[in-house]
Design a protein around this nucleic acid. Structure first.
Length: 426
DNA sequence: GCTAGTGCAA
């Protein structure tokens, strides 16, 4: 912990009274520029440099220095240091500066909880659109999309006009809830401001909202109307098709993108900025599409192309898609050897995929292997044991089943009876 | 010479 103050007053208590008032319009200092540049490369250094500055030359600390250090605390999740900086903001009399208040909200959202964010928000006298958006964003970060939309409504009742950032964040709240009606309502509000259709982040959020809410046609309509798209626009749409079982559409879209890239690289040599290079997330969409449609050969081809042509290191989710694809078609042995050949340690999700498929296809040897791997990973759930015991039961292997049931009761944790688990699932 | 809030899968 980096100490800024000897006696740390909690920023929300009245003990944090301003002690000195520094002139607020100092010329930009070299030290502030250093604080700012470290923010990008190494935020911890921003905090250390600031703490040094406080000890050596407190008069050099202005609202800019405070802003940079607050942002550094947010980035590195330094809760205590963030709180101390908040106290300093008050002690040095910089409380009225709204820029500091909104970044403090962001800092608390990253380090402590929404309640602290809300407290800061409540104490801002003249809340502008950025303050409101910060609050909405804080609820989103804490997986409270319903509250986020509530705040969005409250803001409008307060007579504050949402801007493109507010709309972007609120749309992702609708996406999370699958609330198509609210999403359409926001889309309608956006349509009244033609200049907003130039904001790519906002348009991407709109495509994403329609995808998550299941209106694939509307998503395509928005997608087609975006003049300059980026990788995220394409990714959202590819995933949208994949999720809705439209594998051919998803793969066709991916081919279109690859064709466009080829065309562009032949036209303007060397300018990489204009290319929309597929990233790891886009390939998750592509592989998901193959998996849903049971296209094994295509899936393998895309997986290879991802590694060899695009130089993307596959993550667990990519391996998971491949295992899922092989398992769906009953290629259990191939799935198993694929897992064994993975350069990274297979996780529980992957073994569970194999376990589930082994159950469906009645392969008790592989089921047992997957089961023991899950146990090794210490991630075995009651459901896995039940799945395996049902396989044994189906095969008439009663002794194994009884043994397994016995093991399960031995490993049962207090306060979680099997009866309750059974009730929940029935 | 520097200030705030922004999204892609499970």
């Amino acid at each position: 912990m980096i100490r800024f103050l000897h006696k740390v007053a909690k920023p929300f208590t009245s003990a944090a009274q301003p002690l000195i008032n520094l002139p607020k319009h100092l010329k930009p200092t070299r030290i502030n520029l250093s604080l700012k540049s470290y923010l990008k490369s190494n935020p911890i250094k921003t905090v250390l440099l600031f703490s040094d500055l406080l000890r050596k030359k407190i008069s050099a600390v202005d609202s800019y220095s405070l802003l940079y250090v607050i942002k550094a605390c947010a980035k590195k999740s330094l809760g205590t240091e963030g709180q101390q900086t908040h106290t300093l903001v008050i002690k040095l009399g910089y409380e009225p500066i709204i820029f500091l208040q909104t970044s403090l909200m962001d800092m608390y959202a990253a380090t402590t909880n929404v309640a602290d964010v809300h407290t800061v928000f409540d104490e801002i006298p003249n809340k502008n659109v950025v303050c409101w958006t910060s609050l909405i964003s804080a609820y989103m970060r804490n997986q409270k999309p319903y509250r986020a939309i509530e705040i969005f409504r409250q803001m409008q009742m307060d007579g504050v006009e949402p801007d493109q950032v507010t709309f972007t964040v609120s749309l992702s709240a609708c996406a999370d809830m699958g609330a198509l009606d609210k999403g359409v309502w926001i889309h309608d509000l956006i349509s009244r401001k033609p200049e907003f259709s130039e904001d790519l982040s906002l348009m991407n959020a709109l495509v994403n909202m329609y995808v998550k809410c299941g209106d694939i046609r509307k998503a395509m309509l928005v997608f087609d109307n975006i003049r300059v798209k980026d990788v995220r626009t394409w990714t959202s749409m590819i995933i949208g098709h994949a999720l809705h079982g439209q594998a051919e559409e998803a793969l066709r879209l991916f081919s279109t993108l690859e064709e466009e890239n080829k065309l562009r690289s032949s036209q303007s040599r060397g300018t990489k900025d204009q290319l929309l290079v597929p990233n790891d997330v886009m390939f998750i969409g592509v592989l998901m599409a193959c998996s849903h449609a049971g296209m094994v050969e295509e899936g393998k081809r895309y997986f290879r192309s991802m590694i060899e042509e695009y130089g993307i290191k596959p993550r667990h989710s990519h391996f998971g898609c491949m295992v899922d694809l092989l398992c769906r078609l009953g290629l259990l042995k191939e799935a198993y050897s694929f897992i064994l050949a993975m350069p990274i340690q297979p996780n529980a999700v992957i073994w569970r995929t194999l376990l589930g498929a082994s159950g469906v296809h009645g392969n008790e040897e592989l089921a047992a292997v997957a089961q023991s791997k899950l146990r090794e990973l210490n991630a075995s759930l009651v459901g896995d044991d039940v799945a395996l015991s049902n396989i044994y039961a189906a095969k008439g292997m009663w002794e194994d089943k009884i043994m397994l049931r016995y093991e399960m009761t031995q490993r049962r944790t207090p306060g979680c009876s099997t009866v309750e688990v059974g009730k929940l699932h029935s």
